[in-house]
Nucleic acid binder design. Structure first.
Lengths: 170, 170
DNA sequence: TTTAATGCGGACCAACTTAGTCCTGTTTAA
DNA sequence: TTAAACAGGACTAAGTTGGTCCGCATTAAA
């Protein structure tokens, strides 16, 4: 199924929630209440995103988390790789700490490897083309993704209330 | 990391091995010996591929497995989805038995869902453009994947011996 | 007709990963 | 000084995965 982990899913929900807050910060508690994600998990995910440089945190009383940059400048690839390592279907194609070269006893023989590089690259491109801002906008109609087009007229959901993203979208 | 399971990895190795056998059949035992994948796992994977219609099996003495169609007509998506369900980063976008509609408590509210559909579709397109035959060919240089181009002159590996793909390409 | 090779369909188990919880710091505004 | 908030762990339970094993059904060949 190639699925993302639940934590990544949470991360995206939390980030869209934060993006809607604009430049304000939100506490982990607020985000948990707003999204339905259990607080300890919120905390864990936010820590991860902060470590990856996607969020800035302010400690102490009246602290909280905020986006480190405008949502338009946060590509989806960066979110995913922040929470579950480099985007790659196979380990041998993942440039990063996860797959130290030499792990695969096949490396010298494997004829498939070059292909994986291409495939991984393609997927990265597709994901990198979307930003957090796009995810906050109303869902596009099914287009090629070449341009993450917003529909000219918003779809039937007429109330973009910035509350309660609630829970993982299974 | 979005990684595929090891079984899928095995499946691809085994299929390329089988593709090299042309129209002949191979026994699970032969494939295990040829690839280094443990026999019981080979058996399990081949069973899955057979169930998905990618392989035909012949039982009894001198039985074995063979491709159900020419390798050119087996897209990568079909291989992957045969072994780990529909290709989809999120369950809510997966059309298939895995995600019965209603699993996600958010379905009516989730603003991200439409985007996932686009993303999943893009990945499916990318994977569907490659076939098993392409994976058997020498690895392409890094191109757009628009055309799964075979290099004009084969790279330095001059011996396309159809033996020993050996083990998972980690 | 018998035999042995082969796939078929399970059950089963150990190891690993994941999601979630909890606790003890440290920082900082009020 | 206090309390609210993040930081950074350790820890646990549950689920998944990879791997093993077994008995059965099928079939070509002896």
């Amino acid at each position: 199924m190639l699925r993302m982990s639940k934590m990544t899913d949470y991360g995206i929900v939390l980030l869209t929630e934060l993006a809607r807050a604009g430049s304000e910060t939100r506490t982990a508690r607020e985000l948990a209440a707003g999204t339905g994600v259990p607080l300890p998990s919120v905390s864990k995910v936010l820590k991860g995103l902060q470590g990856a440089g996607l969020l800035v945190s302010h400690r102490g009383a009246s602290g909280g988390y905020g986006l480190s940059r405008p949502a338009e400048h946060i590509p989806l690839t960066e979110i995913i790789s922040a929470l579950e390592g480099p985007v790659s279907l196979t380990e041998c194609g993942a440039q990063g700490a996860h797959a130290p070269s030499g792990t695969c006893e096949l490396e010298t023989v494997c004829r498939v490897r070059g292909h994986w590089r291409v495939i991984n690259r393609t997927i990265q491109d597709a994901l990198g083309r979307l930003t957090l801002a796009d995810l906050c906008a109303p869902a596009p109609r099914l287009v090629g993704l070449g341009v993450p087009a917003r529909p000219a007229a918003p779809p039937q959901n007429p109330n973009p209330i910035p509350t309660t993203a609630g829970g993982a979208h299974s």
